[in-house]
């Protein structure tokens, strides 16, 4: 395996029952790189992202993030809950529907994992959490419960919550898809800032313009395989595969990309 890259996926396979969702996926992401995963609904983008932090257990292949690597398939032992938890603590994930903890304030959400998982002192966790909430522009919302925050604010808290574990990589699964159009910008802004600070990121997105702008590489998936990958502008402006051309044809050129098919995501 290439030891330079931050994330290395080799021969990854996943099926749910008889449905094969990922077929032999190979992927490597260098430190500080931003990779955008695009593709039609059901192509396996979320499943691939969830395999990177092992929220979904692959049926075969290898997954490495930083120095931790796991192999899957016949004859390999599944990692135990401890090993899994340790592994996941080093990767941050942001979900389409935020998944904030509703019984905790914004500050409580961000402090929770450092205190519970890392055993950090409350005072130190609080200080770090306040700094992170300020960084995502929510210094004035630290004591609010999620139910009193807008979608954009919720997603920014969720980003701060993931960052609180000081992850090596950040995974975003359609972080802006559940937001009203006028709130998308504030979340993309935070993601762009993270990218410019050198965070290694894998982003599943339908924001084609954002992917073109921020990502170093774009990967187009369909039916569980990588159809095309390359430098963001090259894949988006001049896709070489017919399937990629057809998919990108569904998006308006330029402006905020919206799928015109209205496919459920």
């Amino acid at each position: 395996m290439d030891t330079q890259s931050k994330i290395e996926i080799a021969g990854l396979r996943k099926q749910f029952g008889d449905l094969v969702v990922l077929k032999d996926i190979n992927l490597s992401v260098d430190e500080g790189q931003v990779v955008a995963l695009i593709g039609p609904s059901g192509s396996g983008k979320s499943t691939l992202l969830r395999c990177i932090n092992l929220l979904v257990t692959p049926n075969g292949g290898q997954v490495r993030v930083g120095a931790d690597s796991f192999a899957f398939g016949p004859g390999t032992k599944l990692p135990g809950t401890r090993a899994l938890a340790n592994f996941r603590a080093g990767t941050g994930m942001v979900f389409q529907h935020f998944n904030l903890f509703p019984h905790m304030t914004a500050l409580g959400n961000v402090m929770e994992a450092p205190v519970t998982v890392r055993g950090k002192s409350k005072a130190a966790a609080r200080e770090h959490a306040l700094a992170l909430l300020a960084k995502v522009g929510l210094a004035d919302k630290v004591d609010e419960y999620p139910s009193r925050l807008s979608g954009g604010q919720k997603q920014r808290v969720a980003i701060a919550r993931a960052l609180a574990m000081e992850p090596d990589v950040m995974l975003f699964d359609e972080a802006t898809s559940a937001l009203d159009p006028e709130l998308v910008g504030e979340v993309l802004g935070v993601m762009q800032k993270l990218a410019s600070e050198g965070m290694t990121m894998v982003i599943v997105t339908h924001e084609i313009a954002f992917a073109r702008e921020v990502a170093d590489r774009v990967i187009f998936m369909r039916d569980g395989v990588v159809v095309e990958e390359g430098p963001a502008r090259q894949v988006i402006d001049a896709p070489s595969e017919a399937a990629t051309q057809a998919f990108l044809g569904h998006f308006h050129r330029g402006g905020a990309a919206q799928p015109v098919t209205g496919a459920a995501s």
Binding site: L55, A85, M93, F95, N99, F101, V117, A158, M165
Partner: peptide
């Protein structure tokens, strides 16, 4: 999504 978010943060 709640246990999933907790797991993603590294909770057992």
């Amino acid at each position: 999504g709640q246990p999933e978010a907790a797991a993603a943060l590294g909770m057992t």
